[in-house]
Each structure stands twice: as structure tokens, then as C-alpha cells.
Design a protein around this nucleic acid. Structure first.
Lengths: 120, 120
DNA sequence: GATTTGTACAACCATTTGGTTGCACGTTAG
DNA sequence: CTAACGTGCAACCAAATGGTTGTACAAATC
């Protein structure tokens, strides 16, 4: 088992996380495995697509680190790794912080009085 | 100007939002236009790719509703639409809520006493 | 041991993505 | 008016996505 050490999420890592979340089927799989750890074929039974298609979706979630697999006999149960979701939230939080900062700057400028617009 | 009415984000809408966020260039464009509204060619000057490539990235962000464009003379300035970021956050919050709910359920089960643990 | 079950993987296909170049058009500047 | 600038769009191309079917293999069951 590989322990996650990297504290700094690389851009490719964030790419993979958002990419994995950009599909309704994968988001649904994530919901199901958050609620209860379950096997790939159990997951596949819930959708109208073929089992290999579901396998691929799980693989995408796994490459993003959003889920992990644990072998139980011949089954391989998929479980959620919610720490990676926190990474995605961190990115969105950074955007929101930037936004608030811009609002504050605009407030400060307006408080000083509009002297001259930089106008590029 | 089209006022955003839809309170219920469709799956395709969420797809587009996360898809738009799944690229480092687009996240960087988003940062820049949050900090300051600016034209497409000004954005293009910041990257080593061609201007049409940047135009396409902006178009992806625009289809996701994360940015908007306002015409100022012959320039078309790109500005952020941070309300859509809140949509993405809402999805992540829902995942986290599910996760907390599962933790609570497990706590409740453990509080009752481990009657028959499924062996993990 | 033979059969079924859960999983993995390869090959294939259609569509989308992310990039390029080139052209057209409206707006501003000289 | 003419030239330059900012933008949009179409055509094209390589690579990735999202799906399929088929094959192979290990574990559980009979």
C-alpha cells in the first residue's frame, strides 16, 4: 500500500481530479462507494453500460486518487478516498479567496476615490 | 444580458464546469480574469500557445458559465462569473456531507456494539 | 476436476479535445 | 481611405475519451 506523502498537489494531479469529476456516471459511482464499499461488478449492475466501461470509469477515479480498491477474496471492493476531494475543494477555495481579495481591493480603491483608471 | 434563472444545475452543466476546471491553462486564465478583467489577446500574450488556442479555452470556460465577455470598443474583455464556482463547491460539499453521514452511521453502529462485524 | 464468477486487459471504433494555420470581418488609428 | 489590430471561425491533425466485444485468468462452488 502506497501512503500518500505529497502535500503539494501537482497540476496534473488536479487535472485528473477535476477530469474524474466531470462525468455524471463517475460522480454517481463516487456517491455509491462513499455510501458503501462495493465490488466493481456490483457497481456495474447499476448502470446500463457494459462492465468494462464501468471498470474504466473506476480506473479514472482511481488514477485521480478519489477511490481505492481492496481485494477481498476474488472480489475487489472499491472504496472512497475523501481526502482527495479536499484537494479539489482547496482549489475552489483558492479561487474564492482571490475573488474576495479582488472585491476588497475594489472597495479600497473606491474608498480612496477614483483617481485614474489604468485602462491598459 | 441573460439572467441566470436555473436553480437546479443539470448534470451536463456540472460536467461542463468540472471539465472546464480540468486544465491548468484554463484554471490560470480563471485566476487572471478574477484578478482583473482583460481582453482575449492580452490573455493570449501570457501563454506560449496561439491566440485561437486561448480563444478555445475561453470558449470552454464560457460554455461552463465560469466567465463572461463584455465588448468594450473592439476589445472583448473576459471577466469571471464566480457564482458558477459556487455550483462546483456545492457538488463537493454534497460529497463531503455524504461522507460525514457515513461516518456518523458507522459511529452509531459501533455505539450499539459490534454485533457482527463483516470481518474487515 | 469442472464450472461459474469477478476481474483484468487488449483491440477496435466514434467522438471530443487541444493544438495548429489561414481567412474574414468590424473597429480604431494614421 | 488605408493600414493595423482584435476577434471569430473553419479546416485540419494528433491524442485522449467513452463505449463496445472478446479473451484470459484466479478464486469460489459443485
Amino acid at each position: 500500500m502506497v501512503v500518500q506523502i505529497d502535500a503539494e498537489p501537482s497540476q496534473e494531479e488536479i487535472d485528473r481530479i477535476f477530469q474524474a469529476l466531470a462525468d455524471a456516471t463517475r460522480r454517481d459511482i463516487l456517491v455509491r462507494v462513499i455510501e458503501r464499499e462495493q465490488s466493481v461488478s456490483a457497481l456495474a449492475g447499476a448502470y446500463r453500460m457494459s462492465l468494462p466501461a464501468v471498470q474504466k470509469h473506476v480506473a479514472v477515479l482511481e488514477r485521480a486518487g478519489l477511490v481505492g480498491k481492496t481485494r477481498h477474496g476474488r472480489e475487489q471492493r472499491v472504496h472512497a478516498e475523501p481526502e482527495r476531494l479536499a484537494r479539489a475543494r482547496g482549489v475552489l477555495d483558492a479561487f474564492e479567496a482571490l475573488w474576495r481579495h479582488r472585491i476588497d481591493s475594489m472597495d479600497a480603491l473606491l474608498a480612496e476615490g477614483p483617481t485614474k483608471e489604468p485602462k491598459e
